[in-house]
Write a protein that binds this DNA or RNA. Structure first.
Lengths: 342, 342
DNA sequence: CGAAATACCGAAAACGTTTTCGATTTGATA
DNA sequence: TATCAAATCGAAAACGTTTTCGGTATTTCG
């Protein structure tokens, strides 16, 4: 009761391994008679090609690697969803690794994937990542490679992103349009490009509306957690009791803010309006319902894999591929936490 | 600029492939001098063994497959987290597939993983799964195999579960202890073992407290969604305006209930108390904060991989392995949505 | 010094597939 | 009938590694 091989089938049928292989793969130079015999015996023996041998021979494994900072995250789990769905549709499997926002781990994992000889790599960088060497290694090895969301701008690879500057600007503009002018920003860490861009978007919105920028209204998350939302909300109310609105780098932090305000009885949005980012599922069931910026996470996953697939196909046929960047649309979702000021 | 191989190193050093291989793998029968030469050249050439060839030769890929019904799910993404963390720690990578609660997909994916010759498989069944043939196939092929959470009781494999009956009984007992006696249950679909067990637990709790069971108080989800929570909440209030408590199969559904009650102004828990299941992150930030049953999701992942690893090690050494079942502890998390009745 | 033990090395098979290229057979055509 | 094309098949190399087994060369010891 062991695995059937081409050799076994060949011997039982008294023909060569070559012919069996060709019959199963639909080569034209095998007679209908032997072809039928091979196919039926293969089915009977429950034959399936040994993928280890196929990998070795064809030098591809139909497997890609995916590195993300954090799986338990509404945004990322949605992206994963999009990637593995699209991958499976195209006959690829996905190995998932989690960097836990650690650059060191991220580097190890890139090395791991290179060693495993995956056909391609998709990555969203950790917050710590301010070093490109591991990404350059991927490029140097000519491994098809796509970055999404948290990217290294200077690495010449395909990318799938949103326009964080404009998205953030729109979020802040929404607050301003609804009558809130003294707006604090709880920003992300200093490294990630998207935290930087959202911060720039925040400043631009102020500028456009002739609101002077006040650096003391900007608070910087280290870990981007729920707890930081709570802590900064408290801090903000101490530093700026007259604050009118808060724009948080992501919904998780905004929820922390909401949670704190609810607990101590600060009315949202009457006293302070709050807007988040990413449109986590949770945001629509809170009290008050949280305004946010919708980020097409599933589509980002799908687009990322499609780009990677293009590059993998070129790579296989040895035709050159020029990396592309896809920018997906976002939109402000207005809910209760930013209702128009009376 | 292609990949270095043993052959290349051997030729450059004027020795045999065998010796190079042995030097790199620390065999005792190679002199220190040649060993050093090999190792330093290997490092210089950035050599790493071709895993395709290693897989073929050793018949293992250090890769396992994981099939779950739904990634975008607080419980499952936490389990994934536990599994890939533990796997990586032990030198294994994880291919993740999502069955989307479809039996058909689940079967295809099992076949896929078998074909890929993964070293082991971990699975949580889809709600549709009432057919065992694909699982029997795994067993028949002697592939190390662990089921968790949503399991097929009759399949003889290792399992990681909670005691759903007792956990559900405790949840309902908590409601009763706090003064709620007319309790509705929004249960899961008919197939999954854990939905069945939680329903049994619900009935047992009533029985213990001499509360007659009323089948009209039981509502059955098809898809176990937020929307179903909303719909059933509405239905329950129509059918049983005097209901005092609701026990929902999972937090997502409970949140739907909460959301509906909040919207139409039904006070929780004053008019109706609500308890969920699984302790999603979201449940602690709602208004009111949702009582629930904590399920150690991360630990389930870790335990699942550990069991699988044990079996994989036995499998490799061809020593027999007896499947085990690990039952993890749960506990009721009392929050605002079930405060003691006055 | 001779024999036995030890240290070091390499040939070769094996894993199972894919694919090239040539060989043989068959049938058709002139 | 001789020739040529088409149809059908198989030998063999190749992918890169691991491991067994035997062969030298060197050392050790009586």
């Amino acid at each position: 009761m062991k695995e059937a091989t081409l050799k076994e089938i060949a011997e039982k049928l008294g023909i060569s391994i070559t012919t069996v292989s060709k019959a199963l793969k639909g080569y034209p130079d095998v007679s209908l008679k032997t072809k039928d015999a091979v196919i039926s015996l293969a089915k009977k023996l429950n034959y399936s090609p040994n993928s280890f041998a196929v990998n070795l021979r064809t030098k591809e494994s139909k497997t890609i690697g995916l590195i993300i900072p954090e799986i338990v995250h509404h945004f990322f789990s949605n992206v994963i969803n999009g990637i593995i769905a699209e991958a499976e549709k195209n006959g690829y499997l996905v190995i998932i690794l989690q960097s836990n926002e650690s650059l060191e781990l991220e580097k190890k994992q890139v090395a791991l994937l290179i060693n495993k000889r995956v056909d391609g790599i998709i990555i969203s960088l950790s917050n710590e990542s301010n070093d490109d060497s591991h990404l350059k290694e991927i490029i140097a090895r000519k491994i098809p490679f796509v970055q999404f969301d948290k990217i290294a701008k200077l690495i010449h690879s395909s990318k799938v992103v949103i326009n964080d500057q404009i998205a953030a600007r729109n979020a802040v503009q929404h607050l301003i349009d609804n009558g809130y002018r003294k707006i604090a920003h709880i920003r992300g860490p200093l490294n990630p490009q998207n935290a930087i861009d959202r911060f720039i978007g925040y400043k631009k919105a102020l500028e456009i509306n002739n609101i002077p920028f006040d650096a003391s209204l900007v608070y910087t998350c280290e870990k981007v957690t729920f707890q930081e939302g709570i802590d900064f909300a408290k801090q903000i109310m101490t530093d700026h009791p007259d604050v009118e609105g808060i724009f948080a780098i992501t919904d998780l932090v905004a929820v922390g803010v909401l949670s704190y305000f609810n607990d101590i009885g600060i009315k949202i949005p009457e006293q302070v309006a709050v807007i988040g980012f990413s449109n986590w599922f949770m945001s629509q069931v809170l009290t008050p319902k949280l305004s946010t910026v919708d980020q097409p996470s599933h589509e980002m996953g799908v687009a990322s894999f499609k780009l990677l697939l293009e590059e993998m196909n070129c790579h296989k046929k040895e035709i050159p591929f020029t990396p592309r960047t896809i920018e997906l649309e976002t939109k402000v979702i207005a809910r209760e936490s930013t209702f128009k000021k009376k």
